[in-house]
Design a protein around this nucleic acid. Structure first.
Lengths: 251, 251
DNA sequence: AGGAGCTTGTGAACGTGAGAACAAAATCGG
DNA sequence: CCGATTTTGTTCTCACGTTCACAAGCTCCT
């Protein structure tokens, strides 16, 4: 992450185009809320209205928006269409991004069928799988193509975003191929930690991790003070007689 | 969020069972890394090894683990099986959690087929949908049941976790029904902000938001200094003649 | 038995994010 | 034209999260 080239200890130097990551993650939420308001025929909204629609605190919302510029009007609020366009432009969804999906199993299928692909701004240009039995299958108006065609497709369609929906096993190899082909942003649904070179962004969506986080809190609710205090395994103190493996993972 | 009842300004009072949220979110990752090491026949691993496998900094990993207790051995490392059990217990996946999935469209289908449901610890007890055409369909070894049966199922199977895979429209209503039926943790895949009463935990997984975050960074990479500086909409300064709608969203 | 060599657990420094509070700007009514 | 009212943009403070750096503790070798 090489951002903000020259940063002297002076003032934070706003407008250095340094939008905090936490804010970036919320902009899409605001965008969706604005779209909903717009569809509902609302032309103007206050930060309070927007915050409610987006499920956040209004002070936070105002601060987030202030990173983009001064797009509101004091005493009035924000023009919904105008703000929507500004956020869309800032995120980059005013242009179209070409996307490939690799791994057409259950989840890949589901994503391929995902009509509209959420908000506009993204265009699925290819569904890829290495399994010959799948290649050629039609899904919606697309056809599953051979993973071997990846490089040609990425180059031809200027693909910069790849979605990995393979099982854990082949995910890293698929990732490497995507990166080598020129993809610089990856959305990973496979339950593994992928390693990518600098300059490539990666985000992970993991169902079972989300469930486990819920389970943790759920356990707190039901048990609370009635937790079995440290029910350690029978006799694990005898760590003494371990072959000094010294780790077999990292180098 | 009523956690940590009495917190005086003294020392942080560790072992008050207050594990930071950021740490909780990483525990499942460590759990998976440990399982992988265990399957690979590794019996002991250092924080460095684990950190590499989990894709984090080793200092962070050690601090995270320290919230659970002192489960390592200085000069040696961590016993993989032992640590795995301790984390599993802390998260709560040593017991089984009953889960219902509501909305059996593309995504619901995919999740229903998701073999093993990631790590063990979760058991899908019902697939629900309100569409009569879907009710009765078999998916794997389960059958889609009518959403109307929700309350009976939740009570009979002690369901505490609900997964919403409906379209945006009905999601809030489904959510309300789940909560009313007694579900206290919800994983939401629908692209809306759900509101729930206190005491109910909710997590959101949103494909298009993830893509938009990637797009933002992608735009920075390609354009960098060559961004079209504020191409404002034609003439949006004329905000003056707006009907003072005053917001039509929150109350 | 004692010292050398590792690795954990944690205190402290630093950076980022959240929220309260308020000054600045814009509208509206008289 | 002026004051009251509304709502933004921003400043300040506090809490949270990350990283460094090192003492404490364990093992192994001589």
């Amino acid at each position: 992450m090489t951002r903000a080239s020259s940063r002297r200890p002076g003032p934070p130097t706003r407008t250095e185009r340094g939008i905090p990551e936490a804010t970036v993650a919320r902009l899409p939420v605001y965008l969706r809320a604005l779209t909903a308001l717009s569809d509902g025929g609302i032309a103007t909204a206050s930060s309070e209205d927007l915050a409610t629609a987006a499920g956040v605190n209004s002070a936070k919302l105002r601060k987030d928006l202030s990173y983009l510029g001064s797009y509101g009007t004091r005493g009035v609020g924000y023009d919904v269409e105008y703000l929507r366009y500004q956020i869309a432009r800032e995120i980059g969804v005013t242009q179209d991004w070409a996307v490939v999906i690799v791994g057409i199993g259950n989840l890949g299928h589901a994503l391929a069928n995902y009509s509209g692909f959420g908000t506009r701004g993204f265009r699925i240009v290819a569904l890829l799988d290495a399994d010959p039995n799948l290649v050629g299958e039609r899904i919606g108006d697309m056809e599953v193509r051979d993973f071997a065609e990846l490089e040609a497709i990425v180059e031809a369609d200027r693909v910069s975003i790849g979605v990995i929906t393979t099982p854990a096993g082949p995910a890293q190899e698929v990732c490497d191929r995507l990166v080598a082909a020129g993809v610089t942003s990856i959305l990973n649904f496979a339950p593994v930690v992928l390693s990518v070179p600098d300059g490539v962004d990666i985000r992970k969506v993991d169902l079972s991790i989300e469930l486990q986080i819920l389970a943790y809190h759920e356990q707190r609710k039901s048990g609370e003070a009635a937790l079995p205090q440290v029910p350690e395994l029978p006799a694990m103190n005898g760590l003494t007689d371990l072959p000094s493996v010294g780790g077999g993972v990292g180098a």
